[in-house]
Design a binder for these strands. Sequence first.
DNA 1: AAGACTCGCAACCGCCGAGCA
DNA 2: CTGCTCGGCGGTTGCGAGTCT
Length: 320
Amino acid sequence: MGRYPCCKVDEDLKKGPWTPDEDEKLMDYITKNGHTNWQLIPKKAGLNRCGKSCRLRWTNYLRPDIKRGAFSIEEEEIIINLHSLLGNKWSTIATHLPGRTDNEIKNFYNTHLRKKLLRLGIDPRTHKPISDLNFLINLSHQFTSKHNINHHLMNNNNNPLAYALRVQARVTELAKIQQLLQVLFAPINTNNPLSTNFATSSSHVITNNVATNTQFLDSLLVNSCGTIPNLDNSTSCISNSSELSNYQSELNSKVDNFEGLSNSSSKKHLDYNSFPSLIAPSSPDQADNAHVINQDYDPNTLSHLNHEGIDDSFWNDIFQ
DNA sequence: AAGACTCGCAACCGCCGAGCA
DNA sequence: CTGCTCGGCGGTTGCGAGTCT
């Protein structure tokens, strides 16, 4: 069974936007006669359109029960929740939103909700936290873009550019630390391909690795404290692994403030507790040349941290 | 002021499955 | 069972409006 055109190509049927006159003809006909056979409707209604075009015009625009206007917060939440469960089943999602068409929901999701989820660090396809640091780097770009420095920020900081640069520095700093975390904790992440070599390790070896890695991480953070700029004019500095979560929360808070989503109940935060495959740009400029670390883990050496595309300066920034 | 660029959305395209002869 | 038709669906396109430079 192949594909059959809904309309004969030699009929020279009209395409493109509908005129008010066409709308009125279609509306009148369907109101009086209903729609049982879309192929017959255009001829009977006096329209030089294909039946499919008439059906779409009716279902997406002329139908009397269509709800107009912006989507409410509740509708947004329903769409996001259903999309996370159903995927791109727009027609099914539309059945839960009376008055909204699948086309309208699809357009709304692709143009608004998709961007909103991305800004929150959520993959709009999987509804899971974005698994690499491109998001963070892009986020830092957005923060430094004058178009995205909103009034809220302007009102709370006399120098938005300086603030944006501080955030960018922090994001880059976090990117480095998170890459380290991935390498260090690879053995205990069973979903991580890096852990393949450890799949057969005994539990005490893994435990020891965790302990060693945690200690190493803490010492690393302590050592790096003096090299990380005092970004917020405070005396605080990440000095141990437990403070990292606070740091992440702070970053999340800044994201929320930028987005002005303080009263959105669908607010979601980045999940920094998973350590998926990461890219390793030391600066936003390197983001395009991102490389995934995929080497065997060796707890006794940092040589595995070396990787094509990552020069010494990347690690020197941390270890100096 | 005007051309370039971006964004949102209506409409179209192409594929698929159900139903029917 | 096969082939045809139709309706439905998701992906894509193109245009107009708004914004930027």
